[in-house]
Write a protein that binds this DNA or RNA. Structure first.
Lengths: 339, 339
DNA sequence: TTGAAAGCGCTAACAT
DNA sequence: ATGTTAGCGCTTTCAA
């Protein structure tokens, strides 16, 4: 069943059918109706490959997700996938480990799959113009922005929270509850990724509250791996360092931290408070409920798709959306025991 | 940069280049080497649309995942995605709600995207031949099989655990610890899905252990939603029904159950034991660590892809793999308090 | 407003 | 072993 068959079926030429199918104006209404009917009756479905070949453009949008074991990104993928489909495009998903380079992955994917654009779900925030020359289609950074790179603001789009400020807020929350000895749990702080920004927010907040930064209270794990976080917190406890609260830069790390504390005989929040940033569904069901700054995941994913498609269709321009988190008052933060 | 350019670049014909690219035998070694070099030097990437058009087959494999908020399926998707890519195919992911019909979704996708085959991640186990006539490409059911449908064994492939038996094992484990009043937490038991099978295993196990089935101890939730599970268990507790253990048919439901128990002042496992089936990474970090029967997710996903591609390439035939779970001895099961 | 025809880049006969 | 060429199904000039 090709366009030719449809044309023959209702006695017009293929170009007419093509015009109808592509919403071109120059077709008489009755002919248009006849063609549409034929399409329906024949159960005709256009061949995407042929379309893509001749117009040398696909309907593919690349989604590059960095961080395999990050459930927060999984929740974004769900929404992104749905929105892309709803708007008539095709998602090409590529998940890569945290150590891999998302730009290279995207550039490769772009060529292989003739992408119209790319959405990055997590990535570095220090892209250089040079490295992005490989990527010749519009892209949107979702969950981060190019804080430390040399990209022009109108060379890319982003949807993110203000990581530094949010981490700052988290520390504020702890300090407001009387904490001064606050540990921080993060993945590699030098990898130019979200962890680094949130770490900076932590440092800044301490400073503003007149609290000296104590390197002994910084626990660095590899990736978002919970195992590493668990072990890191165990080491922290075993080191004998005094602390009454932990800021984890993600919910999963926080969950591992709570486990470590509990296994070491410390009760959360009585002996140690825990706060995080992300807002996973599942962390609302941990014991105690995790107190965390929730990112508006649904909104972020949806906006990213919308913006990218605007860019692709030429109806939008590069923008940078800064979202706000919402504090979930769980049960993992309390005043420290009087000393 | 087309195949023509590459051909001109190294002074051969397009067909020779095509042959090299498609691993055809009839090419002299030195020519092959020359072409490969040219491809590299020119940075040539074949146009998939043209390929698909002429050979009237894409490289697309459909992955239909039913159950949006199921982290177990997310972990499968990760592996499936990687394997599909590694083997030179393209994944077309389609996630649908638990209420939606995966066969219809797959049939639609097949036509739209010219799928070579489909992997179902979660689905019903009562397909009929009639409804599957829409789906004309090979498919693999991952995490379930066609226990109650009328499909011939060699009309489809499957990779699953024996849900009934595994649920049975879970009950055995509880009984071995001295439990007799065992509640079960599941999504709709009538939806012909995994929940139903596991529920049957539960019933069967009770019977074999000479325990009367008490409908008051069956908690039915909608989908895998944790909220519903939480509320369900709260209602169970408030009903005053006596029970010392809960079998949850998934880890997420179990986590919600533990939360409900804790919030109602019951300690796990001292006052109530909890066991589940799935084996999520994250449930190893709940407090207490969830005791659960772990499905070999990685293996299941990988095998599904392998089998499907064998089918597509004509080198394999329909098979049905039954995997074994591994008990994770967490901390959520203990002997009931002496009464 | 419609139709005829030229390719898009590639594979696979068919020739040589 | 290698080259020539006819399409795959579609969009898009260009003519009518």
């Amino acid at each position: 069943m090709t366009i030719k068959d449809v044309a023959a079926y209702c006695g017009v030429s293929v170009s007419t059918v093509s015009r109808v199918l592509n919403d071109h104006p120059d077709v008489k209404d009755d002919v248009r109706a006849r063609v549409l009917a034929a399409v329906r009756e024949c159960g005709y479905v256009p061949n995407n490959s042929a379309r893509a070949l001749v117009s040398s453009r696909s309907t593919a949008i690349g989604v590059v997700s960095r961080g395999l074991d990050n459930p927060f990104l999984s929740s974004l993928i769900r929404v992104v996938s749905r929105r892309i489909h709803e708007l008539g495009y095709t998602m090409v998903l590529h998940q890569i480990p945290t150590q891999a380079d998302e730009v290279q992955a995207a550039a490769l994917l772009q060529r292989e799959k003739k992408l119209l654009g790319v959405i990055f779900l997590g990535g570095r925030f220090n892209y250089t113009e040079a490295e992005l020359r490989q990527l010749t289609v519009p892209f949107v950074c979702c969950t981060y922005t190019n804080t430390f790179g040399d990209l022009s603001q109108d060379a890319y789009s982003s949807v993110s929270i203000h990581d530094q400020r949010e981490a700052h807020k988290a520390v504020d929350h702890l300090v407001a509850h009387g904490h001064r000895r606050i540990a921080v749990l993060l993945d590699d702080p030098a990898d130019s990724s979200i962890g680094q920004l949130r770490f900076q927010g932590y440092r800044q907040a301490l400073e503003e509250h007149g609290i000296d930064y104590d390197p002994a209270l910084t626990v660095v794990t590899a990736g978002y791996a919970m195992q590493a976080a668990y072990e890191g917190v165990c080491r922290l406890i075993d080191s004998g360092a005094a602390f009454t609260a932990i800021l984890a830069i993600s919910d999963t790390l926080a969950i591992a931290a709570i486990k470590a504390l509990t296994d070491r005989g410390r009760s959360v929040p009585a002996d140690c408070s825990v706060i995080a940033i992300d807002g996973l569904d599942i962390s609302a069901y941990t014991v105690p409920t995790l107190t965390t700054l929730c990112q508006p995941a649904e909104e972020m994913a949806s906006q990213s798709v919308q913006m990218l498609i605007g860019l692709i269709e030429g109806t939008g321009s590069h923008r940078h959306l800064l979202m706000e988190t919402a504090l979930r008052q769980g049960g993992s933060v309390a005043r420290p025991a009087a000393t």
